[in-house]
Amino acid sequence: MMRRQDTISQIGPLIMLAAGLAFAFGAIATLELGSFRRMGSGAFPLMVGGILSLLAAIGLVQNLRAPMETGKADPIAVLGVVGGVASFAFFTPMFGVLPAAAIAVFATGSAIPGFRWPMRLALSLGVAIGVWLIFVRGLGMPFVAVRGL
């Protein structure tokens, strides 16, 4: 009987197998393969996709014999980072880069234990000022710093 953890560890090589097969079949189905002399645009991806699938298949067998331990996911950390980046991407068109940066820092900081909101607020303001100084004033990047200003 396989342990649950051993089954989970198979997911890694399976992802690789899926990626290899996707590129190989994608090349066959949608691209020109050409000849050995004049290779088409699909020949190289087909070759590398095939090699990746083969390696992944070997990895699967190897993993069945000696399962590799997987890492432990930290969903709160992932949510914090996803929340931060997504906030930046979502709020930039609405308010401009600086408010979006401040919101993103606040969102990411909320995933860190012990990082209280007054400190988060102070860091958000500090980072927004830093972005303005370095990227807008210093490097002259053509951002909309604050929409409407």
């Binding site: 980072v81 980046v85 930046f88 860190i112 400190m119 860091l123 980072v127 951002f143």
Partner: peptide, 27 residues
């Protein structure tokens, strides 16, 4: 270190966005 990581995230976001003003790149 809790001052560091949120700042790194913003450095990355602004840096990527600044290349071609594309939020698709950020996503």
């Amino acid at each position: 270190h809790y001052y560091l990581y949120p700042t790194v995230i913003i450095m990355i976001c602004v840096g990527v966005y600044g290349i071609s003003n594309s939020l698709t790149d950020v996503w």
